[in-house]
Simulated assay, not measured.
Amino acid sequence: MMDYFHFIILGIFIIIAFYTDVTKSLLPNWLTMSGILVGFIYHLISDGLNGLLFSIIGMAVGGGILMLMYIFKALGAGDVKLFAAIGSITGLQFTLYAMMYSILFAGLIGVIILLVKQEFMRKMFYTIYRLFASIRSKDFKSLENFKRIESTRFPFMYAVLPGIIMTFYYFH
């Protein structure tokens, strides 16, 4: 049972994160930092310094990879801290798979939203046009405005929850 206790912690953490992200469009620092701290403490108690190292590596990789996506404004800072906490709780391997599935689900959700709104082709052509226009003029401010105004946005937790479930399913 102790081997799976961190998945109970993860489940509670994800449910709270899902609720707050969907209702408030926010992943508060108290939640993400608590997730990181609980992951550290749990793994330190259950496996000593090796457990703490397991947790630190998971946090660094989970937060580090998504930091790159944050730099390119693909997601928010709360999502970076969310995956740092997921990494702290579950370690490197689970976090990488959860991240991969979450990103795949996010792409699928985005395409579905565009298809339902019947804007897919228009947005695809317009996005390509804006990208090439920005490259040609070497002015990326218009591209930033385009991303902020025209992009299809939704809470990343809509993709993270099924990504976590899919990862858990394949791990166990």
Score class of each variant (00 low, 15 high):
I103D: 05
G91H: 04
L104R: 15
N145D: 15
L115D: 15
A60I: 14
F7A: 02
I128V: 09
L10R: 04
P155E: 03
Y19G: 01
S88Y: 05
T32M: 11
L49I: 13
Y170V: 13
Q118N: 13
V160L: 05
A17S: 01
K73I: 06
F156Q: 06
T23W: 03
K147H: 15
K24S: 03
F18A: 03
M124E: 04
M166E: 11
G110M: 10
Y42D: 00
F140H: 02
S46N: 13
T95G: 01
I41D: 06
K117T: 12
M157A: 08
G58V: 05
F168Q: 09
P155M: 08
M157P: 15
F140T: 00
S142E: 14
L114E: 11
V111M: 09
Y70T: 02
Y42W: 03
L52N: 08
M67G: 12
H6E: 04
H172P: 12
T95W: 02
A77R: 13
V80S: 09
F154A: 10
T95S: 03
H6T: 02
I164N: 09
L68D: 06
T20S: 01
F54M: 02
F140W: 04
H172I: 14
K24V: 01
I36G: 07
I12F: 06
Y169L: 06
L52Q: 04
H172Q: 14
Y129Q: 09
G48A: 14
R122L: 01
L10M: 07
F40R: 01
G63P: 14
A159R: 07
T127I: 01
I135R: 06
Y158I: 15
M157V: 12
Y101P: 04
G63E: 11
I164G: 06
A77T: 04
S34C: 10
G11M: 00
M166A: 12
L131N: 15
I45A: 06
L104V: 11
Y170S: 11
T167E: 05
M100Y: 04
N29W: 07
R122I: 02
L92Q: 07
A133K: 15
I149W: 06
I41T: 12
G87L: 07
T167M: 04
L31Y: 08
R122K: 00
S34L: 09
A133I: 14
V22P: 00
L53I: 10
S102M: 07
S25D: 15
L75P: 09
I45Q: 10
E119I: 13
S137N: 13
M166I: 14
I56L: 04
M121R: 10
F140Y: 06
Y169V: 09
I164Y: 08
I164F: 09
T90W: 02
I16Y: 04
G58N: 06
L37H: 03
I113M: 12
F168E: 05
R122M: 02
I14Y: 00
N50S: 14
D21Q: 00
F168N: 13
I14G: 00
M124W: 02
I103C: 11
M100A: 10
L114P: 12
I112F: 11
M157Y: 11
G39R: 00
L53T: 04
K138Y: 07
F120P: 01
F7N: 00
H172Y: 09
L114V: 15
A84I: 07
I165P: 02
N29Y: 06
N29K: 08
S46C: 11
T90G: 00
